[in-house]
Design a protein around this nucleic acid. Structure first.
Lengths: 224, 224
DNA sequence: CCTCTGTATTTTGTATACAATATTCATTAT
DNA sequence: ATAATGAATATTGTATACAAAATACAGAGG
């Protein structure tokens, strides 16, 4: 209710895209909480646009799994159940393994060195203690691998899955006890990709996702 | 241009959903061809609704990968390039393997016997020579496996991937030479699930998808 | 006091009107 | 003849108006 959502009018994009990005960010940041209703008129007046782009943005959020709409009842921010999160993580594990496998085959030397850079930057980011900075550094690390697959549709799906986890993953990154584990896991992933060893890479990423899964599921159980 | 699209007004659904289903079907049937423009006013008058539900349906098609829109230019039916199809198939192979693996772990006896039924029905359908009947029987067979995963999000993704392939897969099913191969592959998949042998199941489905991949890619190359 | 019902209000669903942009095609100048 | 220009047209982008359904709440009846 106390949302002061604001549009990024910089880019010259259709309003539906601007609204979509704005709402998406708000959901991921937690400004719009799971279960919160997305009322068209309210959002329209808050963002200073008409209902039309709001509606189209909601349709897009819906497909991303970030919103759910019941006919004649309206839309709300998607609530993630434990089961839902397990389902997402199950898929993510498989696609992340695929991504690592493809990256082993296709990664260029330049991408490998970028991956090492991002790995180091991530390690440094942990010292800041700033969760948002850490999360972004982590995303950047994995994005190098995603891009290296050369499969934009896969990248898109992985980004989408990550979004659905992101909100809950933040909690995991707040606990400094996990940092040494994360560093080791990233190192293992990097090394196996460097050696272009598919099996090692798949195992390394599987462990990484599994540890996330444990942590994320705990957060959901807490919130109930 | 000669489309006589008609709405299924049976169900009491929001028009956007009815329009979405109608357009989706039309694209999958090939009535709306890749690259064909989706003009709002034209579609609206053809379907007897206003532009609003058309626009929302297009947003949904867009997220399914069945339509592409360029700002200020409009939407068109997604063209599938060879590269695009390879990307889709790469993902599909991974998720179909995951589905088989999960089905091995979770499939009930009842689902197993349904799978056998669908396998037999598929074999019979081949004798009709009716491609649409065959395609549907094939879909039904695989749907049993998908449902057995108990993961609705995965089912959704697999259906979505299947849609993108469907239009091109039809050609493969027109050639009766392929029928014995399909029967054998389905049998292998069924047997490995029956034995709950994950590795066998993953291998069987991988072969199945790979053979599809070869055929589908040929179709695309033909069409250019 | 509780429940049911009916009305008022809110909210979504759909249609239409208007604005902005892109495309097309004819015209003109080189 | 070809290329550039500009007006006419077509199409999308956005806002608003109206209709239909759901929700909330108050009042009547048990």
């Amino acid at each position: 209710m106390t949302e002061d959502l604001k549009l990024n009018m910089n880019a010259y994009l259709p309003l539906r895209d601007v609204v979509f990005n704005t709402l998406r960010e708000a959901i991921l940041r937690g400004d719009l909480k799971p279960g919160e209703r997305l009322m068209e008129i309210q959002l329209a007046s808050q963002l200073g646009v008409s209902r039309t782009p709001i509606r189209e943005a909601i349709r897009m959020l819906e497909q991303e799994g970030l919103a759910v709409t019941m006919p004649r009842k309206g839309a709300e921010v998607a609530k993630m159940t434990l089961k839902g999160m397990e389902d997402v993580l199950e898929i993510r594990a498989a696609l992340d393994e695929l991504a690592c496998q493809l990256a082993c085959e296709r990664m260029t030397e330049e991408q490998l060195s970028r991956l090492e850079d991002k790995k180091v930057i991530f390690e440094k980011s942990l010292q800041t203690g700033n969760v948002k900075v850490i999360a972004e550094a982590d995303v950047n690390f994995h994005d190098v691998i995603y891009d290296a697959t050369g499969n934009p549709k896969l990248v898109n799906m992985l980004n989408n899955l990550r979004e659905q986890i992101y909100r809950y993953r933040i909690e995991y990154l707040k606990n400094a006890d996990n940092y040494p584990i994360l560093i080791k896991e990233h190192e293992a992933i990097y090394q196996s990709l460097y050696n272009r060893n598919k099996d090692d890479a798949k195992e390394a990423i599987a462990i990484h996702v599994e540890n996330q899964a444990i942590a994320v599921k705990e957060v959901i159980v807490m919130q109930g």
